[in-house]
Computed example of a mutant assay.
Amino acid sequence: MSSQPVALITGASGDLGRAIAVRLAAKGVAIVGSGRNPEGLQRLQAALPEGAALATIQQDVTHDSAPQDAVDLALKRFGRLDYLVNNAGIGQPKPVHETSDADLDLFLNVLLRSPFRYCRAALAAFKGEAAIVNIASTFAVIGGLRGGAYSAAKAGIVGLTTHMAAQYGAQGVRSNVVAPGVLRTGMTEYAWNSERFKRMNFEMTPAARPGTTEDVAGLVALLCSPDGAFINGQVIAVDGGWSATKYLSDAALTRAG
C-alpha cells in the first residue's frame, strides 16, 4: 500500500472538481476523479501537475453501483482511501411551485442521495485518520430565490455532515461542509452577465471581486490536510461575505428607480 494519501473527488470532470483535484495533487495527494463527461476527465488529466498520480472513472453518481465502483478503483490503484470530496452537482433549480416530481427526484438523487451513498462506501474503506468534505451551497444556510429542491437537498447535506462529524469523529474521520457562493463555472455561465444576477450577487457581496474555483479548492485542501486536523462538523461559506452581511454596493444604494 502506498504511503501517498488518496482523494476521491466526484464531479471531477467539471470546473470546480478540476480545481480541487489540482490543488490536492499539488500537495502530493493521489486523485481518483469521478465524472460523467469524458472530455472533462481528459481536461482534468491535462491540468494536473506533471507526475501527479491520477485514476479516473466515468460514471453517473446516481447509479447504484457508482460509489462502490469509485472506492474500489481507489483501493485497486492506490491501495487506500483517505479523503472523499462530494462535489458532483447540478444547477438551474426552480421555486417549489414550478418544480415537478421528476425535478425533485433528480435534485435529491444527485445532491443528497448520492453523497450519502459515497460517504457510506468511503467509511468502509477508510483506515485511521480521514476526511470527508461535502460541497453544499450558501443556499443551504440562507434563504435564496429559486432555491427549491436545490436548497432542500443542500440543506440535507448539512444535516448529514454534522451527524457524521459526531458519529465518526472519534474514529478519526472528520466531516465538514464547504458552502460556496456563486462561482463562474459552466453551471452559472448562462446567467453570469444578466443584470438580475449581477444585482443579486456582485452588488450584495462585500468582496471586491467574484469568487473563483481556486478559492473553494484552497479551503477543501486545508480541510483534507493536517492543518485542518481539529476542524470537524463545520459549515464554512466561501462567498466573500454574501451570506453573512447586509451589504449593498454604492451603485445599488444610489441607483434611482
Rank of each mutant, 00 (worst) to 15 (best):
S151R: 07
L222A: 12
R196T: 14
D227G: 11
P93H: 06
V177S: 07
G91P: 01
R209N: 01
R117C: 05
A12P: 00
V29R: 04
Y118R: 01
P210V: 09
D64Q: 10
D82H: 13
A19H: 08
G28E: 08
L219A: 08
V238N: 01
Q68F: 04
P115G: 07
A244P: 00
Y190W: 14
A252L: 15
Q234R: 15
A21G: 03
P93N: 02
D101W: 13
Y118I: 08
H163V: 05
P226A: 10
S3P: 00
I57F: 05
G40N: 06
P49W: 06
I135N: 02
A74L: 02
R117A: 14
S194N: 09
N193M: 07
A149Y: 04
Q167V: 09
A251Q: 14
H97N: 13
P93C: 06
T212H: 01
M200F: 08
A237R: 09
P95V: 07
I90R: 11
A237C: 15
R117H: 14
G186N: 12
V178M: 08
S3C: 02
R199Y: 12
V133P: 02
A207G: 08
I231G: 04
P115A: 07
V216H: 05
A165M: 01
A140P: 04
L111Y: 04
D60C: 03
S34M: 13
A47I: 05
T254V: 09
R36W: 07
V177E: 10
G35V: 09
N134R: 03
G14E: 06
L54H: 09
E214L: 08
G11T: 09
K27L: 13
S65P: 00
M200D: 14
A125E: 12
A207Q: 11
L104F: 14
Y247F: 15
S137F: 03
E195Y: 03
A52M: 10
A149W: 10
V220T: 07
F230V: 12
N201H: 11
P93D: 00
P226I: 01
L253D: 09
V158L: 14
D69A: 14
L8Q: 09
G181W: 02
R80E: 12
E203R: 13
N87A: 07
F116W: 14
L222M: 15
G128H: 04
L104C: 01
A191L: 13
A179T: 11
Q45N: 10
L222D: 13
Y150D: 00
A130W: 11
L223T: 07
E98S: 04
A229K: 14
D105L: 11
L123M: 12
L145R: 12
S175L: 05
A153F: 02
N201P: 00
C224P: 00
T213E: 15
L106P: 03
L183Y: 08
A74Y: 03
A149R: 02
K27F: 05
A207M: 13
